[in-house]
């Protein structure tokens, strides 16, 4: 049984009841009761997930059983061939890169990987990528450009790794270069925010022609805990911070930051990874098909215009008249 989140308590009660019933000798009446309870649990879960608060969405996005990039690769791609290392320093396990077939077409795949159990979490550094991860990603994207292959990116990271080695190897430079070069990459790039879009650590592989977001994913400039610690000096006020920061998929669609929300099965992608993958599959196919027909200058002009329009006049800022333009000089 999938791990339950605190707000799923009502469902947990029903599931316990079902478990208790199923341990008793089975009679037709009991089986009917179980079926009824199961239906009720599913209904209740769907109901809860229709009304998730921003912080609850953060919890779903971080759910340990949420399908990861490698799960989607397994479910949707064939002949995945992983490529390792940035040819500069090391191989970062928090970002996985490679090539695979997607509906018969060779594509490059890039994505964060957090790990699920303790051992794999440590191996993947909990999805906190270091400079070499961003450099590996760029290396593979340049390969994709060389061979004229589209790039599919899965974003799921708490942040870029905030540690000494990250800083001394220039994580800021690595992310910055990716932002610039991804804007100019001459092949289609489709981004799917599939879990946590953690700030610059996410954006560092998330510049593309389409930015899609799964229904219960989040994407933010700072984790709610960090925001609360700075603004309220109290990390416990993360719930308020999650509301204020507008981190949910519907918020970001409204702000013009993402292009489309990919629906998840009732109860979230972790309840039914196959159903989640089927929906991801459909949108990826559709967007790749749309992008394939564009010539390179059009593709790049549109990609530029897309990010150029984030924070538009009238929506995000206005122009006021200022007396005399600038002011003093030295």
């Amino acid at each position: 049984m999938a791990e339950l989140l605190d707000f799923e308590e009502p469902v947990a009660v029903l599931l316990k009841e079902i478990e208790a019933l199923s341990l008793m000798p089975q009679t037709p009446e009991r089986q009917a009761a179980i079926a009824q309870l199961e239906a009720r649990a599913a209904e209740l879960r769907a109901e809860i997930y229709r009304n998730l608060k921003p912080w609850q969405r953060v919890q779903v996005a971080r759910h340990p059983n949420r399908p990861s990039m490698l799960d989607y690769v397994e479910l949707l791609f064939t002949e995945f061939t992983e490529i390792h290392g940035d040819r500069r320093f090391a191989d970062d396990k928090a970002i996985v890169t490679g090539f695979a077939f997607f509906h018969g077409e060779p594509v490059a795949v890039v994505g964060h990987q957090k790990g699920r159990d303790t051992k794999s979490k440590i191996y993947r550094n909990f999805g906190y990528a270091k400079p070499e991860g961003y450099r590996k990603a760029l290396r593979v994207m340049k390969l994709a450009e060389k061979f004229n292959r589209p790039v599919i990116v899965f974003v799921d990271t708490p942040a870029a790794y905030p540690g000494i080695e990250s800083e001394e190897r220039g994580v800021a430079e690595a992310i910055a270069l990716n932002l610039r070069e991804m804007a100019l990459l001459e092949v289609p790039i489709v981004i799917l925010v599939s879990g946590e879009g953690g700030s610059g650590g996410a954006l560092g592989i998330a510049v593309g022609d389409r930015v899609l977001m799964q229904e219960f994913s989040v994407y933010s400039v700072i984790p709610p805990e960090g925001c609360a610690a700075i603004l309220w000096r109290d990390a416990a006020r993360k719930v308020e911070a999650a509301e204020a920061l507008k981190v949910t998929a519907p918020d970001l669609l409204e702000l013009g930051i993402i292009d489309e929300i990919v629906p998840e099965p009732p109860g979230g992608a972790h309840q039914d990874p196959k159903a989640a993958a089927a929906r991801v599959d459909e949108v990826l196919v559709r967007h790749l098909r749309e992008l394939r027909d564009l010539d390179v200058p059009t593709l790049l002009d549109r990609r530029y215009a897309k990010f150029r329009s984030m924070g538009r006049e009238g929506q995000a800022f206005t122009t006021v008249t200022v007396a005399g333009g600038g002011d003093q000089a030295g």
Partner: peptide
Amino acid sequence: ARMMEGALSLMQMAKISAALG
């Protein structure tokens, strides 16, 4: 990035970097 403008602030990183490209 300015927290109070959320992910829009984050996206300015991409916007400026694209222009610098």
